[in-house]
């Protein structure tokens, strides 16, 4: 399968402080790839580096093209969209405005309207709350909103940063269900950062394990789930 995203020797730094030390990473077209690792391993930084939000070096190809020198806005326009850690809700805006903001890079008014209705179909809660201030919604609702917002830009590749963080298991299940549906039906590729390794390895086909800014281990989801290291450190059995 061809890769929608391919990073070779990706390095990143905050100011003068290096955080990533050369990561090779590949997300196949229509695939779900999990990115695992302990706190502070550099998972978030990897996503931010791919979106040019931190100082970055290395060769990143997206849809077969090098994206060196592209800004975050450019990349969002090209369909590479992040659901950030902490959800990034526009708290003072209504749910609907949040979705409109998600579609900021698009120009087709009718399409946007249709997509908003489609999102309300995926996430009925949002439909009931369309005029509510987004900041006053619960964590789970905001996570759904964050995913819906990202989908509003018609992404080809979703970068998801810990979508399960702080949510009740039932909600997490629902969210992961929707994510797999979207992946299957709309062909959106996903790079999924997760603490909950069990769940991530269940939906992903391939996975990387980061340790202090380097890839410590990689393989198919089954391989990683079977690996003793991963089991002991992240799966807890």
């Amino acid at each position: 399968m061809s890769a929608i995203l391919e990073a070779v020797n990706l390095r990143a730094a905050y100011g003068d402080r290096p955080v990533l030390f050369g990561i090779d990473l590949r997300v196949p077209e229509r695939g779900i790839v999990a990115l695992l690792g302990a706190n502070g391993a550099g998972k978030t930084t990897t996503l931010r580096a791919l979106l040019a939000e931190v100082r970055t070096w290395g060769d990143v190809r997206y849809q077969g093209e090098s994206i060196a020198g592209k800004s975050t806005q450019d990349l969002v326009r090209m369909g590479m969209v992040m659901v950030p850690e902490g959800r990034g809700t526009f708290t003072d805006f209504t749910v609907e405005e949040n979705l409109l903001l998600g579609a900021y890079s698009r120009r087709d008014k009718d399409g946007i309207r249709r997509d908003i209705e489609r999102m309300y179909g995926y996430f009925p809660v949002l439909g009931q709350r369309r005029k509510q201030r987004a900041g006053s919604m619960s964590g789970g609702e905001q996570q759904m909103l964050a995913i819906a917002r990202a989908l509003m830009s018609r992404p080809k590749l979703l970068l998801l940063d810990e979508p399960s963080l702080g949510l009740a298991p039932l909600i997490v299940q629902e969210i992961f269900g929707i994510l797999t549906t979207i992946n299957r039906e709309e062909g959106v590729s996903m790079l999924l950062v997760e603490q909950d390794a069990v769940r991530a390895l269940k939906v992903a086909t391939y996975a990387y394990l980061l340790e202090t800014g380097r890839v410590a281990l990689e393989g198919t989801a089954d391989q990683l789930a079977a690996s003793d290291d991963v089991r002991r450190a992240y799966l807890g059995y």
Binding site: L51, F90, F93, L101, Y104
Partner: peptide, 16 residues
């Protein structure tokens, strides 16, 4: 308004 209120999130939806 979005850029003023939440610059980081705004960048992520493609606002300059």
């Amino acid at each position: 308004r979005a850029a003023a209120a939440q610059p980081a999130s705004s960048r992520l939806v493609g606002i300059n």
